[in-house]
Amino acid sequence: MSTTSLYILMCSGEHEKIQMAAMAAAVAAVSERPVEVFISMNAVKFFQKNPAGNRYSGGEFSKLLLDKKAPDPIDLFKQGKMLGELKLYACSMAMDVAGLELDDFVDDLIDSAGGLTKFLSDAETGQLVVF
């Protein structure tokens, strides 16, 4: 595939930012663009099966997204994986700090734990965006 790959680095747990990252990842993947997502810092909490507290933390726009029933970010990532070339990696450092294992994440979503060095190295060949 000749299209430049898209690399998405997620560190915020804010619903709005995760929504935007999920939209970008899903749309790029279904547009025949390979996508890799690296999930770190507070963003890892969003993807837990049983997050402590509210999964959808954020401001006014988070409420609007929920009220209007915008597509759920987890569903968007799953659709992107199913319909395109999309891989998600959970930051091993953030997992260690938060005491998380791969089994703690939503099923059929995270491909593996990963390191930042490898992700950034891979991202040199594509376009990197941060949420």
């Binding site: 899903a26 199913m82 319909l83």
Partner: peptide, 17 residues
Amino acid sequence: RGAFCPGPLMELIANLK
């Protein structure tokens, strides 16, 4: 109808398969 972006696109793609 009533679905927000990118819902209609994703559903179209799934159905095209």
